[in-house]
Design a protein around this nucleic acid. Structure first.
Lengths: 368, 368
DNA sequence: CAATTGCGAAAAATCGATTTACCACTGCTC
DNA sequence: GAGCAGTGGTAAATCGATTTTTCGCAATTG
């Protein structure tokens, strides 16, 4: 049992050494499992460690060995289920290998991203899992390259010529969304996204567009992209709708866009999916308990984390092959928020039953 | 600019010293702003620092000073909006004071909680913000006390005789929920919660119960608590409903409970709020965009984080007054999911035309 | 003018580990 | 019995900073 209690100083390796009647060097050897120690001495060292409840000071240890058993993780935000899960998984995987994970949020800022990276470089982390704000060509990647850091990039990336990348196969998933919508008869779809998330937005948009045009050349695809803020996107969406545009489905390329779409539907007093269908990239727990349950592309969070850690540790252990690019398959869950267009069997009723019309709904006639 | 590029070793303080023609001690003094250095020398030191793009090695520095400019944060999970925001805020506040935040997730396990604390103790963090899995009397708190760590506990805590505590004023908020439900005529309410989160569950339950009984003695309050898992709660809820119990409102004491309640409503094909009202402790972004928008107790996340950091830094700076207990007021947002019982003016329509329930809900002003 | 004071900077000790260099001892061979 | 190899272990160097001690030199003081 520890009996240090209130006396302030923690025991050092020298305390253990004198307590066991050996030198500090011997203690060090015992603790790191070097064989050339008489078992009698080893036993006494262990006893001393036990008695003093000694623990190696990682600071001193790692200063000397000049590499730390620490993995850094940088994500754009902590608030979302997606990145929350990513960090949880990365932490689990790192600890499984005897490393600690230090996570930081770049708060969607490339400047902060680099600052955090500098700090981690100072800390001499063994490796970094970076989920860049924008894409794999930002200043953060440049910094990592310049300073010879080992790292893996995930999520908002396609392929880098310097670092391994792991992300969801957005293009394939978007193609599947396209097929699902086309199959249900949709021929006018609005796609909304955030330009900032350059890498994935393009993949998702292109994947959707090319597939849609391949199987339904008459498909009309409108696109609203906002640079980095959600507010302008909301405004653009509102003005788009108020111009009388009436797509039969909306495909949101990111989670917050799905929320924006839903709230704009509310404002217009449109009902989903009767009046308009909705699919979102990124799933969330609540999406399956609401009316309607929201169709979503589910990213393979655990697989992304696992692959990223695998690649990272391969690099840490010295692999210097060419950078790899991994695309992990998504699942597309077509829930109630998607139905064939014009299947709004409730529309007439609604028009006739005297429900209070919403402000936004007036400018956009529901019956044509 | 840095021209180190590919040569591996980072410059040390001695490199800077020799480059500037002074001793390492002098460099150290200059860098930490000690005045007793001739300005000419100081200038040359700065130049050398610039040229070599030198950065202090925090490992070495902090080893010597034996305290680190690091704050540890331990939360039960990363996946939720609440703890995600907490961590984000704590990180911001810590960095604002020149400290780094190291966050870890206990994954709802008290064992892990203690392991993480041990690690942070090894790291000699300056302080810890702990959001305990259960309450302020767990092993983690004991460990912190035994080892003389400075810390503050938040969220699932009431009051400790050792550490400062900060949490939302759950009791007051629950009382407000009670008033709101009673005012709308509810006299049979089901409360669901997680026993594990002992501290807050009791506060929330008692706050609700005592207020309800004070203003509506005829109120019937059923309670379903599950120890630590959500699955048993769902099962208990299902069997409760299938026994024919039919409360007019459900008050969920935690976020996941709100999801469970919603999905059980679905299963029963009940419509909210026409058939049953719902209020949940903890707000989430999606709750205002769904039909119906879900009434929720909004925790003052930023205030909690702010107060916690304030208290923590006061302790770090040496304050050793008696532990303080802070309760921060919540906001209660009564959204569409709450209405008077039996006010299902749309049920008939629904029965006759199969209209989805959300139609009935359009009555509240939109929040954006 | 000797003694004291003070300034600025260098030298050396320190933090707590790891690692290298070296030493004492045993056992074996020739 | 000298020479050599192999064990097991210790003293000392090292990591890269900070902090204490010491020192040289100039200015002030009695």
């Amino acid at each position: 049992m520890a009996r240090q209690g209130l006396n302030q100083r923690r025991p050092s390796i020298h305390d253990v050494a004198s307590h066991a009647g050996v030198s500090a060097a011997t203690v060090s050897k015992v603790l790191r499992g070097v064989a050339t120690v008489k078992s009698a001495n080893a036993k006494r060292v262990f006893e001393a460690v036990e008695q003093l409840s000694y623990r190696i000071d990682p600071l001193a240890s790692e200063l000397r060995r000049s590499k730390r058993r620490i993995i850094g993780a940088i994500v754009p935000e902590f608030e979302s289920e997606f990145f929350g899960s990513i960090v949880t998984e990365l932490e689990r995987l790192a600890e499984q290998r005897g490393y600690a994970l230090v996570a930081a949020s770049s708060r969607e800022s490339e400047t902060r991203e680099t600052e955090i990276l500098e700090r981690m470089h100072d800390w001499r982390v063994s490796g970094v899992v970076l989920s860049p704000v924008r894409n794999e060509h930002g200043p953060a990647a440049a910094f990592m390259k310049t300073n010879g850091m080992t790292g893996v990039m995930i999520d908002r990336v396609i392929a880098s010529d310097t670092f391994d990348t792991v992300s969801a196969d957005s293009a394939a998933a978007s193609a599947e969304v396209a097929r699902a919508l086309v199959a249900r008869g949709h021929r006018h779809v609005l796609v909304i996204g955030l330009g900032e998330q350059a890498a994935t937005v393009h993949a998702r948009l292109d994947g959707f567009r090319s597939q849609a045009q391949a199987i339904a050349p008459d498909m009309r695809i409108d696109v609203i992209l906002s640079e980095s803020e959600v507010a302008p996107l909301r405004a653009a969406l509102r003005s788009y709708f108020s111009k009388g545009e009436r797509p039969t489905a909306v495909y949101s390329l990111f989670l917050k866009g799905t929320l924006v779409a839903l709230s704009e539907f509310r404002r217009q007093a449109w009902h989903c999916p009767a009046d308009i269908s909705l699919v979102g990239f990124d799933d969330a727990e609540w999406m399956q308990v609401t009316f309607p349950a929201i169709a979503a592309v589910v990213q393979p969070v655990r697989r992304i984390a696992m692959q990223a850690m695998d690649l990272l540790f391969r690099r840490i252990e010295g692999d210097d092959g060419p950078p790899r690019m991994l695309l992990e398959p998504c699942k597309v869950l077509m829930r109630e928020s998607v139905s064939p267009p014009g299947s709004d069997r409730f529309r007439d009723q609604k028009a006739s039953n005297g429900l209070p019309p919403q402000v936004g709904a007036i400018s956009c006639p529901l019956t044509t």
